[in-house]
Nucleic acid binder design. Structure first.
Length: 429
RNA sequence: GCCGAGGUGGCAGAGUGGUUAACGCGCGGGCCUUGAGAGCCCGUGGAUCUUACGGUCCGCAGGGGUUCGAAUCCCUUCCUCGGCGCCA
């Protein structure tokens, strides 16, 4: 959510920034917001005047009653003021809801370093790392490898849960947990506090962390309950401190979320249908930071550096892209994607997404900071989030990059200690 | 799930239908002091109007209701604590 004060004081700046996202509708919404806000303030002043009149009147009544005098005339007057107040309240509430709605729908302001573009085609590659593997044979796709090694069962998952679900089996499970443990320990050693959050969230906190469109396209809802399955541990971690004021000394707060993630993938019909690249459920270690506004850009780079360290230790070739204005999400001011090389597809595919949301989430959630204990709240802090490891996609990358001609997989060195010092995944006979 | 007790500012804690959220603690500023401390004074949630000085309104877990008037009475949801039940 943007700061309404900024919109009032500097509408041109907001306008220019929104225009960069290439969504002309948002400019119309902004103008509607500005008009409605002006009317809201006028009406609020009138409403406050009426409430003041009523206050004066009820005090007269109280004084009269104490003196045991007749207050009928004053009561009548108060009643007429009440009628006016009720009408005015209704109008003010209506306008308020409208402005809130628009404010919730408007996206975050973009950082000046975000490249202009209209789709993911325009994302700017900022770095590549690692040598692309050379095969003396035709590399197989992750799904052929996984089925051969009997570490994934898709058919039975279809029977049990439907498309885009999977059973992970045997060494697949060990590999999954090895990745989780590796990422978690890496972050823990850097001072991130591990968090295992609730996997379900109520609607109100959920509205604070994501755009409203996600409720239909992304989130699973529990029937007859005000509960949604989390799409990432970013969401409960962000909402964790909702309506709180955090001491400046305690910032930055660095968290490492551990959870399964659930996504409807409603907008992805026909995409990545084969295999486990895009599924309704996967495990993920997530980095999350609450910090002072002046520190967020530096910490964004820190998150990105952590991602690189993890990918490099896994020996996965990747590229880093600066996500362009047309492809960046609603809440992020700047976003890096890390894309691992997928030999069977001959393409880099997203495995990590690393965002600075500035004060956008914090304002929606009412998370502020104070200079010290006992001091009044100062302003909204900044939030950042980044994947550390999403196991599904990382397994895809590992299988394809580390495959041998016989279909076995060489396990990256850093993972072996979590898998009983095993060096290879081979089919047991 | 059932029964009971609760939810008031950063914290602690009054207020149980009639203008002001008492008294503390903490925090900020000022006076005093060589300095620190103590002491004293002012301030310390949000919105809005005003160039300013300064007003006005809202805020007692959320939402609704009764009333001229609600932190206070009623309904409802959420949460916390205790007891019982169920359960890995």
């Amino acid at each position: 959510m943007l700061d309404i004060k900024l919109i009032r004081e500097n509408p041109e700046l907001v306008k220019e920034n929104l225009a960069k996202r290439g969504n002309p509708e948002s400019l119309i919404m902004l103008q509607e917001l500005i008009d409605a806000d002006k009317r809201w303030r006028e009406d609020l002043t009138k409403l406050n005047d009426l409430r003041h009149d009523r206050k004066v009147c009820t005090q007269e009544i109280a004084t009269l009653k104490k003196a045991r005098q007749d207050a009928t005339a004053q009561v009548e007057k108060a009643k007429t003021i009440d009628t006016q107040i009720t009408a005015m309240e209704k109008e003010v509430t209506q306008i308020e809801q409208k402005t809130r709605q628009i404010l919730m729908d408007l996206p975050n302001l973009l950082h000046e370093t975000v490249p202009y573009g209209t789709s993911d085609q325009d994302n700017v590659e900022t770095k590549t790392w690692g040598k692309l593997p050379q095969f003396t044979f035709t590399p197989k796709s992750h799904i052929d490898l996984a089925l051969n090694l009997d570490i994934v069962d898709l058919e039975r998952a279809g029977k049990v849960a439907g498309a885009r679900f999977f059973f992970l089996k045997g060494l697949g499970v060990l590999l999954d947990y090895a990745l989780m443990n590796f990422a978690l320990e890496t972050l823990y050693s850097k001072g991130y506090t591990p968090i295992e959050p609730p996997y379900l969230m109520k609607r109100e906190p959920y509205e604070g962390v994501t755009s409203l469109g996600d409720f239909a396209d992304v989130l699973y809802k529990i029937e007859n309950e005000d509960l949604y399955l989390i799409a990432t541990s970013e969401h409960p971690m962000a909402a964790m401190y909702m309506n709180e004021v955090i001491k400046q000394d305690d910032l930055p707060l660095k968290l490492a979320g551990v959870s399964a993630c659930f996504r409807k993938e409603a907008g992805a019909h026909g995409k990545d249908t084969r295999g486990i690249f895009r599924t309704h459920q996967f495990n993920k270690i997530e980095q999350f930071i609450f910090c002072m506004p002046e520190d967020s850009w530096q910490l964004h780079e820190e998150l990105a550096a952590n991602c690189e360290e993890i990918l490099q230790k896994l020996e996965l070739p990747y590229r880093m892209v600066n996500v362009c204005t047309g492809d960046i999400g609603t809440v992020a001011a700047k976003k890096y994607d890390f894309e691992a090389w997928m030999p069977a597809q001959g393409a880099y595919r997203e495995v990590i997404s690393c965002s600075n949301c500035t004060d956008y989430q914090a304002r929606r959630l009412g998370i502020r900071f104070r200079e010290k204990e006992g001091a009044p709240p100062k302003g909204c802090l900044h939030t950042l989030n980044s994947t550390a490891i999403a196991t599904g996609r990382t397994i895809v990358a590992l299988l394809e990059n580390c495959q041998q001609e016989d279909g076995s997989i060489v396990i990256p060195k850093v993972l072996r200690k979590y898998m009983g010092d095993m060096e290879k995944i081979t089919l047991k006979r």
